[in-house]
Design a protein around this nucleic acid. Structure first.
Lengths: 205, 205
DNA sequence: CTCGTTACTGACCCATGAGTCAGCAACTAC
DNA sequence: GTAGTTGCTGACTCATGGGTCAGTAACGAG
């Protein structure tokens, strides 16, 4: 008859709260998100949230840890284990990954990092160590491999992995800001990859 | 003997306050900047600030107006009045402009927009109307001109002005976050422009 | 059905900072 | 000088929201 007003589910709470926080941050950004709102989304009181996360900042850290690293690690695994040509990898798995980032939680994290990063140097360091350096390093290695095997020519392009990441980050930020005039993310990413590969294959100076 | 505690300098106040606001925003971001601090930096009381700017948001708009719009407008003027070839313009004035952005107040504004835009849709709209649409429009026109005159081939590149802006925005954000491992901004921008022009001049598919 | 443990609630506290306003003092005209 | 104007001050109000804690009720053990 009388439904219990709540259930005790200690195990699941942190995960659920973290997911709710991602939603809220996605919608409003970090500073503008009320802890009350996160709690509400998680179907929980504010007090309970503070039992699991000491501060709002802890909550933020938890979101970063939960939603970014697994994705990047997966991609790096593919680079390391597969033996396809560099071009095949760039046009295949890498392009697929790049195209799906703008619609994934990673895009939210990117924005949060840009917004709150300067106030949380330790978080930025963590993000660099576990995500950025790995990602850029992997691309670097891939390009180096291409050059070594004679598939790509050595040039200034083959030494700047950022050229490959650029359109992804740019698209994420552009569309988060100007959602009213969205950019064609897929097209931008594809064009850039095409340009880069064209160059690396020696079709131009 | 008795120095006056302040001088009445109605003419200069708005400009000085705007400059102070830019400094404060650069240091702390929009939300984290206290109006009190801006006033202090400007050597003025908070009350006076509110005589010249109705709200904190007005203050922000004033910063954009003073430090961003003139730069963009100057660049557009050059496009419209000069009759140099599209390539010359891209390799000359445009490249110069792009290279100096990361060290200019514009980079501060970009960061602010990314970080706090979602909470202030009207600010985003203001920025779009007065800066982004003008800038992208100008590049579009330039590319179209190049195509019309036969200087450039028509392609997917000539229809995506964002390709030219991308490295600038990316550099600003990257270096803001990871100032410990800064990226070579000039090199990135130059490489991208080279790639794009190479393509547009028909050296590749 | 107890009774003890503890996951959970939500009303509360209080630091913060945007925005206000009554009065003061710098300047001007005479 | 002195009276009028107005640029300017800074103490104030008040909404907001992060963080707390005394109490409540779900659940398990006996």
């Amino acid at each position: 008859m009388n439904q219990p007003r709540y259930q005790r589910r200690k195990e699941d709470r942190p995960e659920e709260i973290t997911a709710a926080a991602l939603e809220a941050f996605a919608k409003n950004g970090y500073a503008a998100t009320r802890v009350d709102e996160v709690a509400k989304r998680a179907g929980v009181s504010k007090g309970l949230l503070y039992l699991y996360f000491k501060t709002k900042e802890e909550l933020f850290k938890s979101v970063v840890r939960s939603f970014v690293m697994p994705r990047i690690d997966t991609l790096i695994k593919i680079i390391e284990t597969s033996d396809m040509s560099s071009e095949k990898f760039l046009r295949g798995p890498f392009l697929d990954f790049a195209r799906q980032v703008p619609g994934s939680p990673i895009s939210v994290i990117v924005r949060l990092m840009v917004a709150e990063g300067p106030k949380h140097p330790d978080l930025v360091q963590f993000y660099w160590d576990n995500v950025v350096s790995h990602g850029l390093g992997a691309i670097n290695e891939l390009l180096w491999h291409g050059v070594q095997s004679g598939e790509f020519q050595r040039s200034t392009v083959s030494e700047q992995p950022a050229l490959f990441v650029m359109p992804v980050i740019f698209s994420v930020i552009f569309n988060l800001l100007f959602s009213k005039q969205p950019i064609d993310t897929d097209r931008l990413i594809e064009t850039q990859i095409d340009l880069l590969i064209s160059h690396l294959k020696g079709h131009t100076t």
